[in-house]
Design a binder for these strands. Structure first.
Ligand SMILES: [Mn+2]
Ligand SMILES: [Mn+2]
Ligand SMILES: [Zn+2]
Ligand SMILES: [Zn+2]
Lengths: 138, 138
DNA sequence: ATGCTAATGATAGTCATTATCACTATCAGT
DNA sequence: ACTGATAGTGATAATGACTATCATTAGCAT
């Protein structure tokens, strides 16, 4: 009952061929650029449907949700509060301890979210107060 | 330059005397109940100011921010996606490993957020499909 | 090929939070 | 204690990220 449509194919293709954490608006703009514009409501619905089908992954960052490829192993994120960039990391021991905590509490954990906020290496060593590149893909 | 006002005192007192993760609207309603109504915009600004002053703590849960007392040691949260309840936990080893990851990446971590989503013990063993208690304090 | 119904897209609505702005109150300096 | 600079208040408008509506279109099971 999940239908294959050109719009969803375009959204999925774009996410799969990039290494970006897209939000709905950014993705819609990129689709316009590439000549296959998709209505913004359809982008929201498409992203939600694709995630529900297990074809893409998401990260909730503050008030906005970002989507990325799912064909990499699970990872968590370092979020730079200066430039907004995302860095990825994997720490199996943390994953194991999370499951252990849930277990001990009788809590059936379905997923988790771990965000480390701070200043990335680049920002910490910035030459001057560069303007933030608002158009940068993260 | 952070001024002491009756509104902020009321907000802080309410948070400090309870063990609840308040959002702005809930807190405003409670203040009305207790006969010291505070404008909703002032509640938002007050919560933000108090957090900035290190007097209360916050958790970003999906699209809404919740505030709680800061006079307990740092902890993270188990979030029940069924009933919305929050359970707290501390895992020093996870904390240590987070700092280690940031260190290795040259990332200056300022804070973090770890949420474990799933079904709490009560919901997992519910007798029937009880209606969620929307008014419940969490 | 047909038809049931999910999907689309333009747009209106929702909801949490922030901005505006006229007015008030805190408090540092006298 | 007085006062002035300015932070804070509160009613309300605005914003921004989504979600609902609804007429129309188009997958896809049969
Ligand atoms: Mn990622
Ligand atoms: Mn807590
Ligand atoms: Zn940065
Ligand atoms: Zn529960």
């Amino acid at each position: 009952m999940l239908r294959v449509t050109p719009q969803r194919q375009a959204i999925l293709a774009l996410i799969n061929r990039s290494n970006v954490h897209w939000d709905a608006e950014e993705l819609a703009r990129e689709l316009v650029q590439s000549g296959q514009a998709v209505g913004i409501a359809t982008v929201y619905r498409g992203l939600s449907a694709l995630e529900g089908a297990g074809l893409i992954a998401s990260v909730q960052l503050g008030d906005r949700k970002r989507y990325e490829r799912i064909d990499k192993s699970h990872h968590d994120h370092l979020v730079c509060t200066e430039c907004g960039s995302l860095e990825e990391f994997v720490q199996p021991e943390i994953e194991r301890l999370q499951a252990q905590v849930a277990e001990e509490k009788g809590f059936r954990m379905l997923n988790h979210q771990l965000l480390l906020f701070g200043i990335c290496y680049a920002c910490d060593n910035h030459d001057s107060n560069q303007d933030l590149d608002k158009g940068k893909k993260i």
